[in-house]
């Protein structure tokens, strides 16, 4: 189950985060303001979210194991 969620979740991030920079000219201006600093901020945000999604994936795996252990005991 967890594996079925993990990859779509990553693709969701792939679809949404760059989407923030896309579209109207105002958001493109925003990404280019302050010497394009927000490009770096977005990159760090992607890395952070990616690691969080991976942690959720590990968490679900562990929860499943814990449930099995409880049933056996």
């Amino acid at each position: 189950m967890s594996k079925r969620i993990f990859l779509p979740a990553l693709f969701l991030i792939a679809a949404f985060l760059p989407g923030m920079a896309q579209g109207s000219d105002t958001s493109a201006d925003f990404m280019r303001s302050m010497g394009k600093m927000y490009v770096v901020v977005t990159a760090i945000g992607i890395i952070f979210l990616g690691i969080v999604v991976f942690l959720i994936f590990l968490d679900r795996k562990l929860t499943k194991l814990e449930k099995q252990t409880k049933q056996n005991d």
Partner: peptide
């Protein structure tokens, strides 16, 4: 598995960087 995670993050961060310097994701 962890390497692939880093690879996907590298592709995504690279795409955002490329959009704002090379002009396309």
């Amino acid at each position: 598995r962890t390497g692939v995670l880093f690879g996907i993050l590298g592709l995504l961060t690279g795409a955002v960087w490329a959009k704002n310097t090379w002009g396309a994701y």
